[in-house]
Computed example of a mutant assay.
Amino acid sequence: MNRLIENILCGFITLLLAVGCKHQSQQEKMISTTQKVLSAIQKDDKILFADLIGTNNADTEALNANLTKIKTYFDKYGPSGAPIITNKFTSLGKRLVIVPLLKGRDTIHHINEISIHLFFGPPQMVPLEKISGYSLIIIDSSGKRVQQFSPTTFDDEDLTTP
């Protein structure tokens, strides 16, 4: 009789756990990964930053230099809003998430906008727990893109909206 009660109790607990475990949506996964990337930037955690890139990142020296460059702008301006999951995709199916750092004017440096572009997916090739590319975008006061650091992707120019 005790064995039967134990089995019923174990089955009930298993059922509760199965019902309580909810899969994250694609958007939730991308936001979670974005937060991890931003945390790695803020902490200057080069190992975590490299681990969050789901593509070949063999050149650690260049990756470290890129992180230092991004961290400089991150420390100066910080995120100026929540990450924006866009409906823009590259021809390879990578989805763009924009992290705004500056939206306004920095009259000293003649900058209007700075953002980090993170690319996700396609999910069947790069899981959404990792990014498939990133760029640092700087737009000057005339609205012209003056600097773009795209060490892992050139997809920024290839964006389309479905």
Rank of each mutant, 00 (worst) to 15 (best):
I47F: 10
G78N: 12
T60P: 01
V126I: 15
K69V: 08
I138P: 01
I108K: 13
L52T: 04
T90F: 06
S150V: 01
L102S: 01
G20N: 10
L17D: 04
D140S: 10
I138D: 04
F119T: 01
L48S: 15
I138V: 15
L63E: 03
C10S: 09
E129P: 00
I8A: 12
Q24H: 05
P127E: 11
S91G: 12
L128G: 01
I138K: 09
T107S: 08
I139L: 06
N66F: 03
Q42W: 09
G54K: 00
N64A: 15
I41G: 03
G20M: 08
L101C: 05
G93I: 11
S32D: 11
A18W: 04
L159E: 01
Q27G: 05
I137Y: 07
G54M: 05
E157W: 09
L17Y: 06
A62P: 00
L102P: 00
D51G: 12
D106G: 07
T107E: 11
L63N: 07
N87M: 10
N2W: 10
N64E: 13
I13P: 02
F120I: 04
G81H: 11
G133K: 01
G81S: 12
I53N: 11
S150Q: 11
E113Q: 13
P100T: 05
T55Y: 05
D106M: 07
F120Y: 14
Q24T: 05
G133E: 02
K103H: 11
G11H: 05
P162G: 09
I116H: 00
L38C: 15
R145V: 14
I13D: 03
L16N: 02
H110G: 02
S115W: 00
D59V: 13
S32Y: 11
T153W: 00
I131C: 01
L92M: 12
L52M: 12
E28N: 08
K46Y: 10
L9Y: 09
F154E: 14
H23G: 07
I8L: 14
I84A: 06
V97A: 06
I84R: 05
S80F: 06
Y77F: 15
L16F: 12
L4N: 00
I138Q: 07
S91R: 12
I111N: 00
I8G: 00
N66L: 04
T34F: 06
H109R: 15
I70S: 00
M125C: 06
E6C: 05
K36S: 13
F74T: 00
T160A: 04
N87W: 05
L67M: 08
A62E: 13
T152A: 06
N2P: 07
